Amino acid sequence: MDKQYFLELLHKYLNNEATDEEQQFLVKYYELFSAEPDIISLLSDEQKKEIKEEINASIWESIDKHIGVDKKIIRLKTWGRKIAAAAAIIGVCGIGYLFLYNKPVVKSPQSYSAHRPKPNLFLVLPDGSRVILSYGSKLSYASSFDGLAKREVYLTGEAFFDIKHNNLKPFVVHTGKIKTTVLGTAFDVKAVPGDKAITVTVTRGKVKVSNNNKLLGIIVPNQQITFDRQKSISMQTNINAKNYTIWTAKDDLYFEDVTFGEAAKVLEDRFKVKILFADQLVRSKHFTSTFNKSANLDQALKSICEFNDAIYSYDKAKTTITISTKSQAN
């Protein structure tokens, strides 16, 4: 588990805002971080005791419930082995990684970062939402939103979000005390460490911005809320959203293990075209590559098609591109 993400969940727990699954995360990973000074300082002796009692209770509950049940050993990814080893050394919580029982397993969160000299990072969240993460920025989120009441992510830096619509599960971006809540929309959030302000800019749909539980405003396309971190005041203005999202197109873009269909959405936005797929197998192919900022549409398509053993045809009159496999053309 990413330490910063753990700290954010711990703050929610102390404010009685943590969901049941988030509390399970805290119970599962507390022992791994409990020796850290910045974590110890947050908790009173009573709160430390309460969390440890929850840990012991959860372990004994698992033992009591599953005595005599065949246990299936699961494969661990590299990071999973490291956490399991650390937990085994501490002597608590390792059981959660070593055995898989016939019940849902709480998945650990993932954390993505884009740093210099790498370009901006394009990634797809577990729900299918698309994000362009500015270099030097960091986005933390759970590996699955299944079973959660909200789709919550934690941002440090700047990112452009294109959120998949879900009426039943709001999407929440946390940037310190500021929360940006949406159902399905496209917007930019900038919360760079050291900057005096946090800005939220909407390009499509509607978002709600709040400071803890205080509503700062609800904004629609070409509107922006700016929150002054030092003075704790906000201002809502009408702007041209394109001026605040131009960064997504002016730098190189790194595609990390994305499908051709997901990358096509980026090309559609950048070049104002419609991309169709004659073969869904091509659409679902994964690849990793860097998209050069100076590349034109033809160059970008040729590069991605070469990766995916595909070809394309371009109807300029209709601004429509059709992607198909090379075998279909023969």
Rank of each mutant, 00 (worst) to 15 (best):
D38L: 01
D38F: 03
D38N: 05
I39G: 01
S41L: 02
S41A: 03
L42N: 12
E46V: 10
K48E: 06
E50Y: 08
I51D: 07
K52H: 14
K52V: 01
E53D: 05
I55F: 05
N56K: 04
A57Q: 04
A57P: 01
S58H: 14
S58F: 05
I59E: 11
I59T: 08
E61A: 14
S62C: 08
S62A: 12
S62D: 15
I63M: 13
I63K: 13
K65L: 15
I67G: 13
I67N: 13
I67M: 13
I67A: 15
D70R: 10
D70V: 04
K71D: 12
K71R: 12
K72T: 13
K72W: 10
I73Y: 14
R75E: 12
L76N: 08
L76M: 12
K77N: 15
T78F: 05
G80T: 02
R81H: 14
R81A: 05
K82H: 05
I83N: 14
I83V: 11
I83Q: 11
I83Y: 14
A84C: 12
A85K: 08
A85E: 12
A88G: 01
A88D: 03
I89Y: 06
I90V: 07
I90P: 00
I90F: 02
I90A: 07
G91K: 03
V92D: 03
C93E: 11
C93I: 03
Y97A: 00
F99K: 02
L100N: 03
Y101E: 08
Y101V: 13
N102A: 09
N102L: 07
N102R: 13
K103Y: 14
P104H: 09
V105D: 04
K107T: 08
K107W: 02
S108N: 13
P109Y: 02
P109H: 07
Q110G: 07
A114D: 00
P117K: 02
P117I: 02
P117L: 01
K118N: 10
P119S: 03
